[in-house]
Amino acid sequence: MNLQTLRLLAALVSGGVFGFGLSLSGMLDPARVRGFLDVAGDWDPSLAFVLAGAVAVAMLGTLLSKRMKRPVLDQAFHLPPDTGIDRRLVLGSALFGIGWGMAGFCPGPALASLTLGLAPSFLFVAAMIAGMTLHDRCFAGVTRCIGSPS
């Protein structure tokens, strides 16, 4: 098996574990997510355990990665650049949070829920992709909007 096949397999397994974890954790259920966000009302704190568990294990992975020169199947780690805290980060996250609160869906769970074949999931994912495309085509930068990407 060549390296690219192994990378595909690694991504598939990682996605599968992610999707199963979301299903088990309750994150797939918008009603549970909205109950978790409703701190001032009938608060359901259980999903805080999802975040705590996920961050704890991901932290171990991060520590391990710092002892490695490169990932097992690639030449280098591809980490997002630290561009500092700016208005785009805060505005984007606020907009994301409002949408998350309205529907109870965020990108990972919304995608995984497509497998259950519920119509609102398809509508949400279609709208989410439209929102992403709108941003990437027109708001990612003025130049990118004028000179449309191929």
Binding site: S14, G21, S25, A56, G61
Partner: peptide
């Protein structure tokens, strides 16, 4: 447990594919 698995998934993708 679901959270631990999500963390495992994130670790796998980081350590294998970077």
């Amino acid at each position: 447990f679901g959270g631990l698995l999500i963390g495992l998934s994130a670790s796998l993708l980081l350590l294998l594919n970077g």
